[in-house]
Design a protein around this nucleic acid. Structure first.
Lengths: 212, 212, 212, 212
DNA sequence: AATGAATGAGCTTTCATTCAT
DNA sequence: GATGAATGAAAGCTCATTCAT
């Protein structure tokens, strides 16, 4: 006894993640879900409704994952926590990048999604929020510079994961977590030290380097 | 006497911005350009090449700004130069984000685009290159920290503008230039100072602030 | 209750024989079979696969005759067995020469056909094989010269029927079976005796003639 | 000063020989002839007329080549003369096989060609005639078995070259003359000795073998 | 005579959707 | 609920032909 409605939604999600919306056909969905093509129209009014359902569920999932992130404030070395967080965000985006792009490619879909996102408060802002709150807390603990704006910082970190996820997805690579982690460390070094020239003596820089 | 090649490109741009890629058909393009459908294939090898051409022209502004960036090394306050550049990039991407994402949402189209880019020796990197070269020069002038990797920094700046463009599009907002500029300044401050807490005395920070 | 798959194949055969491949369109096939054009692609991967299927069925007779040939080894006069077989091959090829040549006239189609044959492990050789095996058996029985290469001989016989079919089609003639049979006998005599002058006495030749 | 009319015909012939009729476009012809596409319609009523002209000229050429063959009766070793002749026929067919097949693929073209061939007495029969006459003469000289029918023999030889030409053209191979010659010798051995078992003593066979 | 941009009908193929079973 | 054969509109693309220059 299988819940075919759910099967179809799951199959749609899987195909959206791996192949995108542009070439997503009802035939492929039916094959992936191991049901007849006609059954789709028994459970959903049309293809658009099915896609809409699938995307919505994916977005809720992503939101939940990210909102549970900042429970770890002060528990471990900051860089470790951040790395973990970024890896989670990376994974989420690696899975969702095709969908996000797809929504932009269809003005109809885009408009409807905008409405939904407003209603349910799902959106990039709301997701970054979790990271931002976490950084603010760490800042209060003195583990982050008092000069930075936590929101802006959260965004910078956020962006890097998106970029990496898109690049890897589109080039067909799927590096394992250790590799991803290594790349993040590289970017984070730049972000932590800042772009501005250091006004202090040479020792300072050396010290920093030693620290890491 | 009409240049139909240009007509077709213009029509494509118009339709991309108003309806998105998903609903873009050669039939519609021909109708919009008031030419026969077959003419498209006289001037372009296939639909992908036409889209490529349209996107290239849309990105012209960004290209020009970034290629001319190295000429401004050391001319004005670093933050001013960067702000101007980022604003232009932002604007172009705000206009074009629909189209760029669309291409990413269709694996077939994306592959064909990469082929065309190879044929013509154009790469997405080439745009960031200008920014990267500029940052390196500024670094040599001592206006940027010696600890940063100019390439990584260029990427961070680049990403921020794209992300901002996407986010505003996704949420349906269209802030005017002063607002955009303000937001950039916020990000850049974070990037310049770095996330890490300053190990030196309070004066240091004050000095930095004064400098800007 | 109609088997539309078969309808489509039948319609294809009819159109191939009456109009040739050059003017064969999927539209016409669908109309002839009284089905929707799209149905063709439900039952066949592409137009080439449909044509392949149609040709296969047309060649069925030849296949059966040749595969059953080894069962007749030594049962009747060798020349009778061969004549029967060649007549069937002739007939099939007279019907099918248009189509076979058509496939050779389109490089794309020809390549696709070879792909399909590879997929299904079918080869044109396999038909000649039956003839070749038969000749080898007869050779062991002493009813064929020990000096000949059964494969080369099989090929010669095979070619003669095809050539005759092509020539008659090309010149617009359609001789009845007795005429065809007579012509084959003529060829076979030449093949059996060989072109080389007989080095032995006159009696020899007389003996041969008596034998047949 | 160039005769563009002839240029176009020549280009058409070249393309027909190498690529066949099925994908022959006026655009390709114009490019091959280095003229504008429109010029074709200045010199020929339509594409069909051009093709017709080109094919006709090719057929006349072939006819001439083959009718001059049997002037060498008795001049050299029989096998040498035959080998030379077969090589010429082979070459002609290697060049013409696509055309022959193409004519079969279009019933319209086929019917018109049939008419023309009748009018001008060009056809496979008339071409084989030359070979047949030659064999008859050699038979009278005692260099061929008195038992064979020269016409049937001519056909057998003829067929072999066609078959080899088709096979090589379609598999994309173009073996040089020595290779072709070697293969012919193999077939000719079978044809010369005949398929029938040798009724004479064992020595005879040995003698034959020694002879070769 | 020569050009090549422009036309538009027609091609193969795709795919969301329907419907008899 | 479930199937999958069947539909037909529309997609990208080809190509013989025309025509202003």
């Amino acid at each position: 006894m299988s819940d075919n409605r759910q099967n179809i939604i799951d199959a749609t999600q899987r195909l959206l993640q791996t192949h995108g919306l542009a070439r997503l056909t009802t035939r492929d969905i039916a094959r992936e879900a191991r049901v007849a093509e006609g059954l789709i129209y028994h459970h959903f009014k049309d293809k658009a409704e099915l896609i809409f359902e699938a995307v919505q569920i994916m977005m809720e999932d992503t939101k939940n994952v990210l909102q549970n992130l900042p429970l770890q404030v002060g528990t471990r070395a900051l860089s470790d926590i951040l790395e973990d967080a970024l890896c989670t965000i990376y994974r989420t985006h690696y899975e969702g990048v095709f969908i996000i792009c797809s929504i932009f490619s269809d003005i109809h879909l885009h408009k409807r999604m905008q409405e939904i996102m407003k209603e349910r408060n799902i959106g990039p802002r709301s997701k970054i929020e979790g990271l931002s709150v976490f950084l603010e807390a760490e800042q209060r603990l003195g583990r982050l510079s008092k000069n930075i704006d936590p929101q802006a910082a959260a965004r910078c970190l956020w962006l890097i994961t998106i970029q990496l996820a898109m690049e890897n997805r589109l080039t067909g690579r799927n590096p394992d977590e250790t590799q991803v982690r290594k790349e993040f460390r590289n970017y984070m070094q730049t972000l932590m030290n800042g772009l501005a020239p250091q006004p202090t003596s040479e020792e300072n820089i050396t010290m920093k380097k030693v620290k890491k």
